[in-house]
Design a protein around this nucleic acid. Structure first.
Lengths: 206, 206
DNA sequence: GGGCTATTTAATAGAGCTATTAATTTTCTG
DNA sequence: CAGAAAATTAATAGCTCTATTAAATAGCCC
């Protein structure tokens, strides 16, 4: 058994599939195409993953775990809450920036194939709860001391997700309609990152 | 020629297709299924629209025109800018609320099938430019008089879109994960509508 | 090398899909 | 009512897709 080659073929299929799924979604990507782009026989895709659904799940879980493991957790510092929150928002922005097509895939597959919500729920259970709870605790502390307005963490997270995700969801459209170069898109990203932090901080003021 | 029945069959196919496309996307919906759900012969779908792509385009254009025609244009009043803006944001929120799955379809099909961007660009050209320009003019006026901070209309629209769209994109996930009843979801919508208005108004303060 | 396992391939079953065609039924019109 | 036009249907061609199977090949250990 050639360990090197084993891993590389399976990995190659995995990476090719990920790329194609992200580009065109689950339904529009065939195992035939995955094999063609990988440069391997079509039966190999099924040899390693048995079904297309399995292959997708593997990638989905992988990406989700990756997302979770890269979440910002360095909020044990004693910086003021505003600064910590700004760091979190920026880290979240960069996280999505490094996987700009992932939100699309997640929405696409969760909406079109609701049974995948079950898988998602399990994954969400793996979220680093301590970090979440600490953020919630800090938020309450700030509220109690009157430094921010009465609010709750779900609104805060929803606002952050909205602002940080939409710019990447909309990039294909924005770039095409406004004829922006990659450089200009990156400038737009930097601008929106600051903007999003500002919007969120302002939204919390008493 | 039975005018009534003509229209009703074609219309029936159109409506069924719209429902299915919105639910499951373009690729996951077959003309066979559209016919089955419509209760008509599969060849009829092609008789009226020749190709599945044509059918999709018809629906897409239809929806887009509908969206545009329902855009809030009543900004000739002399209410203060903040109130007018609040009305616009709320109207936009309600517009998406009445077509909650449309943003998903738009993103889905524009991202997976980039050639549709061309169609979109044409449709965007049909946007009521006067309304857009007036908003821009008013914004500049407010900036000049120091009532809001230096900003631009694209940021404003992007923020509004982000906040107003994401809650509906995320609804299937939120509802499932948090086990919310339809009533609770509606309460969440009302809450977020106010929240979004507030966030946007605060983001503009000097 | 021989046997063993893992990998890869070609071939194909079986299903579903889009689109077309030709025939049939329905509807309209003079 | 007769004939034309429109709507509807059944049948099917021609693809492509997923998944399986059986055979071929490669790598490894004794």
């Amino acid at each position: 058994m050639n360990q090197t080659k084993d891993i590389s073929t399976e990995q190659l299929i995995l990476e090719t599939a990920e790329k194609l799924f992200l580009e065109k979604g689950f339904a529009m990507t065939s195992t035939t195409e995955i094999a063609r782009v990988s440069g391997c026989n079509q039966a190999l895709v099924h040899y390693y993953f048995r079904t297309k659904e399995n292959l997708f799940q593997s990638i989905f879980e992988n990406k989700f775990r990756m997302l979770i493991s890269t979440l910002p957790i360095d909020n044990q510092s004693n910086k003021p809450f505003e600064e910590q929150l700004a760091s979190i928002v920026e880290a979240h922005f960069e996280l999505i920036r490094s996987n700009p097509k992932l939100p699309f895939l997640i929405f696409n597959e969760l909406i079109t194939n609701p049974q995948r919500l079950k898988t998602l729920k399990q994954r969400l259970g793996e979220l680093p709860r301590p970090m979440f709870l600490q953020l919630q605790r800090q938020l309450q502390e700030e509220i109690d001391e009157g430094r921010i307005r009465q609010t709750n963490i779900l609104d805060l997270l929803l606002t952050m997700l909205s602002l940080n995700v939409m710019i990447f969801l909309g990039t294909p459209i924005i770039q095409n309609v406004m004829q922006l170069s990659d450089n200009e898109i990156n400038e737009l990203y930097e601008h929106r990152k600051k903007e999003n932090v500002m919007i969120i901080l302002r939204s919390l003021r008493p």
